[in-house]
């Protein structure tokens, strides 16, 4: 568990006068299930987007698997589920996943196998041939997760993966992520569902207004019988 997969080194991101991420330094080890917590507008999505080079940091550096985030090679074997995941409405879930797998470099046949596996994993077999325009938000989210799993990813970056899922979906998501544990998978997930995070993740970082408030193992963050929620509220309210 000592190999560092993700490393933020003094990363700052400014949008004009607004500092979305403020001198954040943190690292995620291989095999770790890491939760990025924080209130709305804290800068979680901004951190995630900088990791994928979707937006560049104003200062500081980020590396993934030891490669700078500005290098395309660092995105090898990353599975990404975007906050409010979207799909082309004219494609079926299966066609979408097929494209995702082919873009990862799989041949048509291999891609089809990958699709089968991940459709099964997210329980979307029934809907795989319907057009995305007919999907509910939760279905799109499930296909989004399937697309993150499709390329044999070793690192999953999930930005609010449970958004739009029903309680059963949330539970299935948790079971799925738990089943990936022990396969060497590293997961970074941003979420507002603290009770779920408590069950799945090993480590959490709480950020507020772009600043890293705490980063520790969940068991160390929760002291004296406090819940994660209580710590979260105390840290976030304490500042404001």
């Amino acid at each position: 568990m000592s190999n560092t997969v993700i490393e933020f080194n003094n990363v700052t991101k400014r949008y004009g006068s607004l500092t979305a991420v403020d001198a954040v330094t943190l690292s995620v080890a291989q095999g770790e299930y890491f939760a990025l917590l924080g209130p709305n507008g804290a800068g979680k999505t901004t951190l995630v987007k900088m990791m994928l080079d979707f937006t560049r940091p104003t200062s500081g550096t980020i590396s993934v698997n030891g490669i700078s985030s500005t290098n395309t090679a660092c995105r090898n074997a990353i599975g990404y589920l975007a906050e409010n995941h979207r799909m082309p409405p004219h494609l079926s879930g299966r066609q979408y996943l097929q494209r995702c797998a082919e873009l990862c470099g799989f041949s048509r046949r291999e891609a089809a196998e990958q699709c089968d596996r991940s459709i099964e994993r997210v329980g979307m077999r029934e809907k795989e041939h319907s057009k995305a325009s007919s999907y509910s938000k939760g279905m799109i989210q499930r296909f989004g997760l399937a697309s993150a799993l499709v390329g044999n990813a070793k690192l999953l970056i999930l930005d609010e993966p449970t958004a739009g899922l029903d309680p059963i979906g949330i539970r299935e998501m948790r079971l799925l992520l738990e089943s990936l544990k022990g396969q060497g998978m590293t997961i970074l997930l941003s979420s507002h569902l603290l009770s779920e995070v408590e069950k799945i993740c090993d480590t959490a970082a709480i950020i507020n207004k772009g600043k890293l408030m705490v980063k520790d193992s969940i068991s160390s963050i929760i002291r004296d019988g406090e819940t994660l929620e209580a710590v979260f509220v105390r840290l976030v309210k304490g500042l404001t």
Binding site: L52, T72, A73, R75, Y80, H85, R86, C104
Partner: peptide, 15 residues
């Protein structure tokens, strides 16, 4: 951008 194609493609090792 609206259909999520950009983020899907650029999250892969594609320049």
């Amino acid at each position: 951008r609206d259909e999520g194609i950009q983020s899907c493609i650029l999250a892969k090792p594609i320049a």
